[in-house]
């Protein structure tokens, strides 16, 4: 069995947190470039240009592109033939987050209890999702998830009779309800199927897909294209001030579900869609 020292995992995560905060991934900056060319509103174009300038400065000066450096969300794929030496994987990740948010001068945005609301001052605990896969590799995906967009996310248990139309209407309605709050142009992550909790998790996981790539499921690819058009036709535009680019992309994942269920979850994401992936 291959083993990875926990200190190596912590150091990797430390760097990932800083990189995520300061360097917008290529797929998102490419989508913003396209948005700048397509936007019809002069105010909207100004906003997108300033966002792009902000992205450039964040990368060059290694400063966080958004002050909400988020909750640190991890999707881990752990090969069954690889282990961690010197503690649990969860502890190694949390140590890395603590170091990254301190060393990178990132904002610590996590409170220890949702009701007493005392800041933990470390940005931990991180949110970590584990999945076991074949092989001896450890893949770590990290998202710095801001709350402005997260707060505009919704889930609904539809009935099978409501079908595809019901799903699409709920997604469009969610974007409309959020309006300017999730910082448009947004990325829309959608989960369809599974159970209550699986559906929500799929919606978040869907956000990790490359915006430039087509969904391998032809049904979902068709729905994504159709939804993107409907969402941009709402006219919400950059920052909700009116325009033709409301979303940079829609990404959907689906999962088998009960004969009586049709869950749908929409996880809203801002244009500062910060995610990093590393394989050890």
């Amino acid at each position: 069995m291959r083993t990875i020292p926990s200190t190596k995992i912590s150091e990797t995560v430390r760097k990932m947190c800083i990189q995520a905060a300061c360097e917008l991934p290529r797929d998102v900056s490419d989508a913003l470039e396209k948005a700048a060319a397509e936007e019809k509103s002069p105010v909207g174009r100004d906003i997108i240009e300033r966002i792009r300038e902000n992205v450039r400065l964040g990368r060059e000066e290694q400063r966080p592109i958004c002050q909400d450096t988020g909750v640190s969300v991890f999707f881990i794929q752990k090969g069954c033939d690889v282990g961690v030496d010197g503690g649990t994987l969860g502890n190694a990740i949390n140590t890395g987050v603590k170091l990254g948010y301190e060393d990178g001068y990132l904002r610590k945005s996590v409170v220890r209890h949702p009701l007493d609301r005392v800041n933990t001052k470390t940005n931990t605990p991180a949110v970590i999702h584990f999945e076991e896969v074949e092989g001896d590799k450890l893949t770590i995906c990290m998202m710095a998830k801001g709350a402005g967009c997260e707060n505009m996310s919704r889930l609904r248990m539809l009935t099978p009779a409501q079908g595809e139309e019901g799903v699409k209407d709920f997604i469009v309605e969610t974007v409309k309800k959020g309006w300017a709050n999730p910082c448009p142009p947004v990325v829309v992550g959608v989960g369809i199927g599974g159970t209550f909790e699986v559906c929500a998790l799929l919606a978040k996981k869907a956000l990790l897909g490359d915006l430039g790539e087509k969904n391998p499921d032809p049904i979902l690819a068709r729905i994504e294209a159709e939804l993107l058009e409907r969402i941009n036709n709402l006219g919400i535009g950059p920052q909700g001030l009116g325009g033709t680019v409301t979303a940079l992309g829609v990404r959907i994942l689906a999962h088998p579900c009960h004969i009586a269920s049709l869950p749908v979850a929409v996880n809203m994401e801002c244009h500062a869609h910060r995610h990093v992936k590393v394989t050890l």
Binding site: R50, L57, G58, P64, C66, G148
Partner: peptide, 13 residues
């Protein structure tokens, strides 16, 4: 006034 959400570096300047 609406400022640009996510433009943290530009605004800090």
């Amino acid at each position: 006034f609406a400022a640009i959400g996510g433009a943290g570096v530009v605004i800090a300047r």
